[in-house]
Amino acid sequence: MPGSRFGAYTDAMPKVSFTSALARFVPVPSVTTEGATVRAALDRVFADHQKLRGYVLDDQGALRRHVIVYVNGKPVGDRVGLSDAVGAADEIYVFQALSGG
């Protein structure tokens, strides 16, 4: 992604993990995927795990209110567009926010 802190990655292979709290409902993969943004990386995962999408994103594709996505331990800044850049060495972690009870 131009101008991002990681520069442009065409061969980005971030790792995506999901909270085990989701495993009650759907299979949760822990996968290495492709994509230069959180959105792109998650979309690739959801393409193979379609049911998972609705657990993480709302009807408009934004993060659900009580879901947090961390990149290398930092919450993403753009919860709506998920435009935060990610690179090959990054780890994306999808977590249930404590605000959700």
Binding site: Y55, V56, V67, Q96, G101
Partner: peptide, 22 residues
Amino acid sequence: LGHFGNKFWRRKPGGAWEERPV
């Protein structure tokens, strides 16, 4: 679901629960 939104589950007579589109 507190974190993960609205979900539907359905059970037909004699069948098992299955998640359904929302």
